[in-house]
Design a protein around this nucleic acid. Structure first.
Length: 580
RNA sequence: GACUUGGUAGCUCAGCUGGUAGAGCACGUCCCUUUUAAGGAUGGGGUCCUGGGUUCGAGUCCCAGCCAGGUCACCA
C-alpha cells in the first residue's frame, strides 16, 4: 500500500522500519557521542601482521552491503578510511532467549545506508578476509532513502553511479559510493595546503579582502551585480581581488596573498564555473622574472608533494613539471606556431593576418585583443607542457608595467599547461600617471563596445598615487591546476558543488493539506498534488474536465478502492475555491 | 548561444516497422550458522522528463519546452 503518493515503496518501507525501531525503544537518531578506537584502514593495514591487536575494537560507519544467511550474516561497513567486513551471529548479538536484536533489528529494520557503531574483535574468515566479529551494535542513524548500489569485483565495477547530473546534484551520493571521488577532493585540499605552506614559509601574509565591491576591477570580465539595501547602492561580486591586494602593498606589507573565490558572469563549460578559486600573490621589490622562478619552484614542489614525482599523466599524455620550463615571448610563440612575425604590424595589419588565418575578429577588438585571439587560437592549444608566455601587448594589460626595453609591450607572463592558462603575472604598474592613462584607454575600449573593458577605479588610483613599491603580482587558477593534478577533464569534477541549472520543482512539495480547507475529500486532495496541482491557484485555473479525467486515471492506475468522483463533483470543488 | 546525444523502477540499462512496460542489482516474504559483484525460492514496485499533435491505439512517430552530457562558440 502506498501511504504517501510522493515517496517510493522502498522509502515507505524504511519509514515503517523507523517507527518499528521506536516502538522497540530504540532511538534511530541518538544524541550521544559514539566513541571509536579504530578505523577500517588501520585494522586492514595492521591486523594480519599482529593478531593481538584490535581484540576490543569500536568502529562506526555506513552499511554498504549485507549478506544474510539465517543465523549468521556479513555486512560491509564504510567509514572515511575505507570498508571493512562485519560478521554478525545471532546468538552472540543476543545472549539470552530474546533474539529481537538479530532477527528483527538487524535483519529486518536495518538497511544499506544506515549508520551504525559496532564493538567486537577482529579475526580472519575462512575466505581470508579481515573481519570484525560483532558483539554489540548500535544504530546511529537510520537512512530513509535507498542508496545507489555499486558493486565491484577484481577491479571491475558493476552498476557504476556515473550520471554526471546526479553525481553533481547529489554529491553526497557520489562521495558515498565512489570512493575515488573522495580522493580527488583530498588531493585538491592537499594542493592548497602545499601552496599555502610554501607561501607562509616565505613569510608572506595571508589576507582577506572584500567579495562585495562597489567597483569591480582587476580583470576583464562581466560581473554579478547585487544590491545593498541600507547603502542604497549597487555592489558587484568580485571578479578579482588584485586592486585590494595592491593597496595592502601600498600600506607597507611586502608580501600578501589570498585564496580568493572570484565570480564571473559568463558562460559555463568544462573549464568555466561562475565561481572559481584563484590564488593571488603580491611581493614588493620583485619583478615578473623573479615571479617566474617562484612559480616554477612552487608548482614543482606541489606536484611532488601530491604525487612523489614531477611527471604525471594528464589526459593521456605525460606532463613534466621539472624545472626549468620552456619560455616564449608572445610574438615568439605566434611566430613559432604560424611562421609569421607580427610584432611590427599595426592594428589593420594584424586584423588582416588574423582573418587570413581563420581567426574570428570584430570591430570592437583593439590591437591587443587581436593578438590575444591569434594566440588563443593558434598557440595555446598546442602548449601541453608547462610553458611561460612573456611580454604581452600593452593594450591587453592595463595593470602591468611597460616593458623595461621593448616598446609597446608589458612585463607580463602567463603559464600555459595542457592547453590552458593556469597562471597570470606581471611586474605591477606603479606609475600612477601611466595607470590613469591606461584606465582611460580601457574606457575608450568600453565606448567601442568591449563589454569586458575595465572601469576606472578612483579609490585605487588614490592609493597608487601614495606610492607603491615596485611589485610583482601573480594569479594562479586553483581549479585549473587541480584538474591537471587530479587528471580530471572537467572543472565540475574538482568542485564539490558545481553550478547547475535549478531543478524544476516537482509535485513533491505539495501535500493534501494544501487543499485541506476547501471541502475536497482527503483521498482526492492527495491525488491532486500527484496530478500536478501544487496549489489552489493552479487548480482554480485548471480545466475541470481535465482534472476529472486525471483523477479517474490515477484511481485506475493506483487501483484505489474509493469510488470515482462525478464530473459535477469535481467542478463543485473548483468553483468553491476562493483565491484572495 | 549553435550543433549533437540522452532522459523508462531506488540504481545501471533493454524495449524492433506504433499493439497489455522488461532485466540485473536493490526492496518485501519464506528457507539457510563463515559469505564476498551474485545463497535459494517467491513477490511487489513505473507521471516511460513535461505539454501539445497524428492515430482506433504513442515509451516508440511529429512539434514545442525543460534538464543533462559531448563538441564548438564565449571565457584578455
Amino acid at each position: 500500500m502506498i501511504m504517501n503518493p510522493t515517496i517510493s515503496e522502498q522509502e515507505a518501507i524504511r519509514r515503517e522500519a523507523l517507527e518499528q525501531l521506536r516502538s522497540l525503544g530504540i532511538d534511530p537518531y541518538p544524541a550521544e557521542t559514539y566513541e571509536v578506537n579504530a578505523t577500517a584502514k588501520q585494522i586492514l593495514d595492521q591486523f594480519p601482521a599482529d593478531n593481538s591487536l584490535y581484540q576490543d575494537v569500536r568502529i562506526a560507519g555506513r552499511i554498504m552491503g549485507r549478506r544474510i544467511m539465517g543465523n549468521a550474516s556479513f555486512a560491509e561497513l564504510q567509514d572515511e578510511s575505507g570498508r571493512i567486513q562485519l560478521y554478525f551471529n545471532r546468538d552472540e548479538i543476543c545472549l539470552g532467549e530474546d533474539k529481537t536484536m538479530y532477527n528483527t533489528v538487524f535483519k529486518r529494520l536495518l538497511d544499506i545506508g544506515d549508520i551504525i557503531g559496532v564493538r567486537g574483535f577482529v579475526f580472519i574468515t575462512k575466505m581470508g578476509e579481515t573481519t570484525i566479529h560483532v558483539k554489540e551494535f548500535k544504530i546511529l542513524c537510520k537512512s530513509l532513502r535507498p542508496l545507489p548500489i555499486v558493486k565491484e569485483k577484481d577491479g571491475k565495477v558493476y552498476d557504476a553511479f556515473t550520471d554526471p547530473e546526479q553525481r553533481y546534484r547529489q554529491r553526497h551520493l557520489d562521495l558515498i559510493v565512489n570512493p575515488e571521488v573522495r580522493d580527488v577532493f583530498r588531493r585538491r585540499a592537499k594542493l592548497i595546503q602545499s601552496m599555502r605552506a610554501f607561501l607562509l614559509d616565505k613569510d608572506y601574509l595571508e589576507v582577506e579582502t572584500p567579495v562585495l565591491q562597489p567597483i569591480y576591477g582587476g580583470a576583464a570580465a562581466k560581473p554579478f551585480k547585487t544590491y545593498h539595501n541600507k547603502l542604497d547602492t549597487t555592489l558587484y561580486l568580485r571578479i578579482a581581488n588584485e586592486l585590494y591586494l595592491k593597496r595592502l602593498i601600498v600600506g607597507g606589507y611586502e608580501g600578501v596573498f589570498e585564496f580568493a573565490k572570484d565570480f564571473r558572469n559568463e558562460g559555463m563549460s568544462r573549464f568555466h564555473n561562475p565561481e572559481f578559486t584563484q590564488l593571488e600573490l603580491y611581493v614588493a621589490y620583485k619583478d615578473y622574472e623573479w615571479i617566474m622562478g617562484l612559480v616554477e619552484e612552487m608548482v614543482e614542489k606541489i606536484v611532488f608533494d601530491l604525487h612523489g614525482t614531477t611527471s604525471i599523466p594528464v589526459d593521456g599524455q605525460t606532463i613534466s613539471f621539472k624545472r626549468p620550463w620552456k619560455r616564449y615571448s608572445m610574438y615568439g610563440a605566434i611566430e613559432h606556431f604560424t611562421g609569421t612575425d607580427i610584432s611590427g604590424m599595426d592594428e589593420e595589419g594584424i586584423r588582416n593576418f588574423a582573418r587570413e588565418n581563420g581567426v574570428e575578429t570584430d570591430d570592437t577588438m583593439g590591437r591587443g585583443k587581436l593578438i590575444d585571439e591569434i594566440f588563443g587560437e593558434k598557440c595555446e592549444p598546442n602548449l601541453i607542457q608547462p610553458t611561460f608566455i612573456t611580454d604581452y601587448p600593452i593594450e591587453m594589460s592595463p595593470l602591468a608595467k611597460k616593458h623595461r626595453s621593448k616598446p609597446g609591450l608589458v612585463e607580463r607572463f602567463e603559464t600555459i599547461c595542457n592547453g590552458k592558462e593556469i597562471c597570470n603575472a606581471f611586474s605591477e604598474l606603479n606609475d600612477p600617471i601611466d595607470q590613469r592613462a591606461r584606465f582611460e584607454e580601457q574606457l575608450e575600449l568600453g565606448r567601442r563596445g568591449d563589454p569586458e573593458a575595465m572601469v576606472l577605479d578612483e579609490d585605487f588610483l588614490r592609493a597608487i598615487e601614495t606610492g607603491m613599491p615596485p611589485t610583482a603580482g601573480l594569479g594562479v587558477g586553483i581549479d585549473r591546476l587541480a584538474m591537471i593534478l587530479t587528471n580530471k577533464r572537467s572543472i565540475q569534477d574538482v568542485l564539490f558543488f558545481p553550478q547547475m541549472r535549478p531543478e524544476k520543482t516537482s509535485a513533491a512539495v505539495a501535500t493534501g493539506n494544501v487543499f485541506g480547507q476547501t471541502g475536497i475529500p482527503e483521498d482526492w486532495a492527495g491525488l491532486l498534488a500527484r496530478a500536478g496541482y501544487n496549489d489552489l491557484k493552479a487548480l482554480k485555473e485548471a480545466n475541470p474536465n481535465k482534472v476529472f479525467n486525471q483523477l479517474c486515471g490515477l484511481r485506475k492506475k493506483l487501483k484505489l478502492e474509493i469510488p470515482a468522483p462525478g464530473l459535477e463533483e469535481v467542478k463543485g470543488w473548483i468553483d468553491q475555491i476562493d483565491i484572495k
